[in-house]
Design a protein around this nucleic acid. Structure first.
Lengths: 364, 364
DNA sequence: TATCACGCTTGAGACGTTTCAATGTGGAGC
DNA sequence: GCTCCACATTGAAACGTCTCAAGCGTGATA
């Protein structure tokens, strides 16, 4: 692999001059410039980022860690971040934590060794020791948490506005005639999940419906467990819920399995709505009503916040918090067949959840 | 960010000794080793990969380029590759080409600048200039093509056994009673697509069915176009096909849209089968019969082949070709309602396509 | 007691860049 | 015709690490 030295030799100039041609930082006379470019062509020379990074102590690389990029939400986030990064000349190093705190720790260490200039982090759902995060921040490495927001750590963060997004979904179920609405959550160790439950409660409250603790079904990350939990609760004695609201996609799939196992159909037997898209559009039945998160935008904005920190644009500012609105996609599954529906079913009505604060929209 | 020099200072030893402790390449006496480890702890020191890479000219990083990692097939491939890489101490730099030859070229250049030690490449579907690939190979950078195999370039490759996988899907449709089977393909500039068409033809041939050119519907990568093509062909005068077979996921979704637009149902009006998984399991209707590619394994094996090249294990060997078997997941959509079905519908029968050659299975 | 061998430890050079200070060149101004 | 300046070009140092050769101390052998 040819080096700048080789190029200089072939072009008959000094290494300094070659460097100037490449970086454009210092003017070089046209004849010399052409000779250098010709030599670069001839040798098929590619500047060595490694050496450059060492010298400048800038790698122009960001790290992004997600629990599992085979979950369809995350690739969208990563692509959003990649776009923002690429626009500003940065690359992205993506890694999967498997939602495991130990692995997360190792990978954070790896990213530090790689000298990424900043980290985009979706924390593992198992409670992450505060020290893991504060270590990074204390070392002066910019970090932005996205999607999942850690408790008690003052750190930049970008996510959906959980509370109003959940409330929007639940309000819709209420509008459609449901009254006894169960919520299936992920681990409540995650702040986001707690906020979604709060949104659920507020929506019930505003509708004058008392919330009942045994309609809050806490799940975990093992789909089989969640299915079992739902199956058990659905066969409890007493009145069955007339609607289920799920706070995330994997959980929703697990809940749907429970329904299928019990021979229950949505929307005929029970209405259904969830965070995150389960199927493509409306090609499949049941078409599931969805609170759609702006995954791409979350990634994009998070990367922008991070880059602004790195480049000192927002130096010294306190923790930046961006909460993006979700969108409601109404489909068949939320039609409560036991109620006098006030809305013609299956319409593609969209709404936006409220709240965006302290944030400038990106260029169009 | 502390350096090895700082550590040496704190521990009261030379930089060389610290280096030996870190790499373990040279024995260091226990007392000194402990002092060094203590200093590392105290300073929260993380070895600088950048400097190490420069010195050793080994980055221990692989590049992987896919068209678009929001297509669910690719994240699985990437995770497979990541596992294999991590096991051997390598990291993965993942980038998206947007299926664009120009962007692919830029990104290959970027990866070279980053000095990745090898490249896993899913080529863009627009015909890639041979020179793009041969440049890399000529420069001595190991490369493995996966999923999509370039024409005329002798390069290591890992993919599904396209021919037998397609044949398996089509044979199944025939078994279920279909006789007039249309195939919807991606761009035939891709060798894989052509091999899948070949498999389709062979299956028809073996069943004594003449293949007709106007049942081969060539699509492209714009879903709307594919939908339009399918709509047009489905309303052609003359007998309508009694089954559709699609060679990839996005194409299948587009074809299903066409069916919906025309008010056609599967399997009632037309049987349906496709490469790639469209929905989760059998929670949704219509449940689509699928030729399932071993995406994770493709990534895993590709990375292993690449690493073997990098580490000289398979030095000098000619192009290594691995073709993995696909799996057939039979579901409702392939039941041809107009035929006397020979199989009880909806069973979860699985089969494997044939052909695996010159390849050792990975440890369990 | 002197020598030797072994093995831990050290110092310095090199990896490919960038960048600063210094050099060289030609033209403008007096 | 001389001085000075602007500007293109050069040479060398430094980034943090690994590694080789050399140094040094210890214990065993003669």
């Amino acid at each position: 692999m040819p080096s700048i030295k080789k190029v200089a030799e072939v072009a008959g100039v000094s290494v300094g001059t070659v460097s100037h041609v490449i970086t454009g930082s210092v003017p070089v006379s046209e004849p010399l410039r052409l000779k250098v470019l010709a030599a670069i062509q001839e040798l098929n020379y590619h500047p060595n980022h490694v050496a450059r990074s060492l010298k400048t102590s800038k790698t122009r690389t960001l790290g992004i860690m997600v629990p599992d990029m085979t979950i369809s939400f995350f690739p969208q986030v990563i692509r959003g971040a990649e776009s923002a990064a690429r626009e500003r000349g940065y690359s992205l190093l993506a890694v999967n934590s498997d939602d495991d705190a130990e692995r997360q720790k190792e990978l954070l260490s790896l990213l530090r060794s790689q000298r990424v200039e900043g980290i985009l982090l979706v924390i593992a759902s198992a409670p992450t020791p505060l020290s893991q995060l504060s270590r990074i921040l204390d070392a002066g490495i910019p970090m932005v948490c996205l999607d999942r927001i850690p408790d008690r750590v003052p750190v930049d963060s970008v996510s959906v506005e959980d509370l109003s997004a959940a409330a929007m979904g639940v309000e819709h179920l209420i509008e459609m005639g449901s009254r006894r609405i169960a919520i299936v959550t992920g681990p409540l160790s995650l702040k986001n999940e707690r906020r979604r439950v709060l949104g659920y409660k507020q929506a019930l409250d505003r509708a004058g419906i008392a919330s009942e603790n045994d309609l809050i079904w806490q799940g975990n990350l093992r789909p089989d467990d969640v299915t079992a939990i739902c199956r058990a609760r659905l066969t409890d004695p007493g009145p069955r819920p007339d609607a289920i609201f799920c706070t995330n996609g994997p959980t929703a799939l697990a809940a749907l399995r429970a329904l299928r196992d019990l021979g229950l159909k949505t929307p005929e037997d029970i209405a259904f709505a969830t965070f995150d898209e389960l199927t493509v559009d409306d090609l499949f039945t049941p078409a599931i009503t969805t609170v759609l998160q702006p995954a791409y935008d979350i990634g994009f904005h998070a990367a922008e916040v991070l880059l602004n920190r790195i480049e000192g644009v927002s130096a010294g500012a306190e923790a930046i918090t961006i909460r993006l609105p979700a969108t409601l996609k109404v489909r068949e599954s939320s039609r409560n067949m036991n109620a006098a529906s006030r809305v013609s079913g299956g319409s593609q009505r969209r709404r936006e959840s409220a709240v965006v604060a302290g944030w400038q929209p990106p260029r169009p």
